[in-house]
Simulated assay, not measured.
Amino acid sequence: MKFTRALTLVVAMVATPLMAASNNVVDNGDQLKQKLSDTLGVEVQSLNQSPVPGLYEAITNRGVLYVSKDGSKLFHGNLYDLDNGMKNLTEAALAGPRMEAIKPFEQNMLVYKAKDEKHVVTVFTDITCGYCRKLHNQMAEYNDLGITVRYLAFPRQGVPSKNAVDMEAVWCSADPLKAMTDAKAGKQVSGAKCDAKIAQQYQLGQSLGVNGTPAIILEDGTMIPGYQPPEQLLQVLDSVQ
């Protein structure tokens, strides 16, 4: 990788989807994209005007970066709108593209569907994570509140690992939903192989900024890191409608 030690921390801390839409044109866009690629080793997917005059917003395969028009200065971090309730402008820019990146993986999700569905959340989960188990143990409560939970795999030990192999066994089980419940109860799930795309799910999570589990993606693409109790999650979901 072409990161310097400092820039490794800058770029790796925030991840993003692989696409973004904007009508703002950057005159020297090709040169800036090439400079960022050559200097940092990132792939720039889009380069647009940012909400701050004088800064461009670069959305890459490894992070969101803000760069000066002449390409001499780099800024990393979230932008907030002080006049709009401290709205996180960086998160808002990522929400739509994040959902687009998830769509191709819908067929790989393990879905616990609410009978009276009001909301759908996508959760990057691990079978050994304590708070993932806590969330799963309350699945009936989420469902009773009208919240459908869709799981994607994020083995915390990475890929390849025993963790990833165990999660593949869950996804490839004859009854994956029961196998997930068993695995999160600490039971051993019989090994099975299939095209579960565990590695791809893990890589997707990394590209979206997941660095721990559970990570909850709301319907608007907003990501909430960490466990949320059923009633609290419902309040959040109702507030973003």
Results as ranks from 00 to 15, higher is better:
residue 100 E to C: 02
residue 174 A to V: 13
residue 107 Q to L: 07
residue 132 C to V: 06
residue 69 K to Y: 03
residue 203 Q to Y: 14
residue 17 P to K: 11
residue 212 G to V: 15
residue 55 L to V: 10
residue 179 A to D: 08
residue 73 K to E: 08
residue 130 G to D: 01
residue 72 S to C: 00
residue 26 V to Q: 02
residue 129 C to R: 06
residue 141 E to S: 05
residue 154 F to P: 01
residue 27 D to N: 03
residue 60 T to C: 11
residue 106 E to G: 06
residue 128 T to E: 08
residue 241 Q to V: 14
residue 129 C to Y: 04
residue 30 D to L: 09
residue 53 P to A: 12
residue 165 V to Y: 01
residue 137 N to L: 05
residue 15 A to I: 02
residue 61 N to K: 02
residue 151 Y to I: 09
residue 185 A to D: 15
residue 233 L to V: 14
residue 183 A to P: 07
residue 157 Q to E: 12
residue 18 L to G: 15
residue 241 Q to G: 13
residue 97 P to V: 09
residue 137 N to T: 07
residue 100 E to L: 11
residue 177 L to N: 13
residue 79 L to K: 03
residue 137 N to Q: 07
residue 131 Y to A: 04
residue 110 L to K: 03
residue 32 L to A: 00
residue 168 E to P: 05
residue 150 R to K: 13
residue 218 L to G: 08
residue 237 L to M: 13
residue 127 I to W: 07
residue 92 A to I: 09
residue 196 A to Y: 08
residue 97 P to Y: 10
residue 175 D to Y: 04
residue 171 W to K: 13
residue 21 A to S: 07
residue 106 E to M: 08
residue 211 N to W: 07
residue 29 G to C: 04
residue 38 D to A: 04
residue 161 S to V: 13
residue 144 D to G: 05
residue 34 Q to T: 04
residue 1 M to W: 05
residue 13 M to A: 09
residue 215 A to P: 01
residue 27 D to Y: 03
residue 96 G to T: 15
residue 171 W to M: 12
residue 132 C to M: 10
residue 210 V to H: 07
residue 217 I to M: 14
residue 61 N to A: 10
residue 116 D to S: 13
residue 182 D to Y: 04
residue 122 T to C: 12
residue 99 M to D: 02
residue 205 G to W: 11
residue 196 A to W: 04
residue 194 C to E: 11
residue 66 Y to R: 06
